[in-house]
Amino acid sequence: MLQAKSGVRIATRNVASFSKRFQSTSSGIWTDFSKRSASLKLNSPEVKQGLLHKINPEEGPASISDYNRRLAYHSPEDIDETFKQAYELLQQEAEVKYKEIEGYKKRLGEAKSTKEVEFLKKSIDKLLVDAEVKNPEVLYNVEYTDVELLDKSQPVYRHLLKEKWEAYDLMITMQRLEQLHMIPDTLPTLDPKVDVKVKFPHNVKEEFADWVVPGTVLPAFAVSQPPTIQIQEFETVEEKNLYSIVLVNPDTPDLKTNSYSTTLQYGLANVPLDNVDNVIDTSKLFSQGEKFTFKDYQPLVPEKNAQTQRACLWVFRQSEELTLGDIARENFDIRDFASKNNLTAVGAHIWRQRFDRSVNYVRNKYGLGEGRVFRRVRGTAPVV
Rank of each mutant, 00 (worst) to 15 (best):
G371Q: 03
V271F: 02
Q265V: 04
R376G: 04
A338F: 08
R352S: 05
N305S: 04
F316H: 11
V359D: 09
N360C: 07
Q307G: 08
K340I: 09
L313F: 06
R317Y: 11
L264K: 00
F286N: 15
E303D: 13
T263I: 03
Y297S: 11
R357P: 00
G369I: 06
S339C: 03
P302T: 04
S339T: 12
R335W: 08
I327V: 15
G371V: 03
V271N: 09
R352A: 03
Y266E: 06
N342Q: 15
F316Q: 11
K365G: 00
S287W: 05
A328H: 11
R352M: 13
Y366A: 01
A328M: 09
Y361K: 09
Q288R: 12
A345P: 14
T263F: 01
L368H: 03
L273W: 06
I280D: 07
N305K: 07
G367H: 08
Y361H: 13
S339G: 01
T323A: 06
Q353W: 00
F337A: 05
Y366I: 02
T282H: 12
D356T: 05
P299R: 04
R363Q: 10
A338T: 07
F316R: 15
V346N: 05
N275H: 02
F374Q: 03
N270H: 10
V271I: 14
F355D: 11
Y297R: 12
E330G: 06
Q353R: 04
S319M: 10
L313A: 08
S287M: 05
F332D: 06
G325S: 11
D336A: 14
T293F: 09
R335N: 15
N275M: 04
L324N: 07
E303Y: 00
F374A: 08
G367S: 02
F316K: 13
L300V: 05
S358C: 03
A311W: 00
R352Q: 15
R363Y: 04
T263M: 04
V377W: 04
L285T: 07
V377A: 11
F292Q: 08
P302D: 05
S283V: 12
N342L: 15
N305P: 00
V301M: 13
I327N: 08
R357T: 12
V315S: 05
E290M: 13
W351P: 01
D326Y: 08
R378C: 04
E330W: 02
K295D: 12
L300P: 00
G267R: 03
N342C: 14
H349A: 07
N342E: 15
H349I: 03
S319W: 03
F337L: 06
G369Y: 09
C312W: 02
L268Y: 13
Q318H: 14
L268R: 02
L368M: 09
L313K: 04
D336P: 01
Y361R: 14
G369M: 08
G267M: 02
L273Y: 08
E321A: 13
A328P: 09
A311C: 10
E290S: 14
I327G: 05
L268N: 01
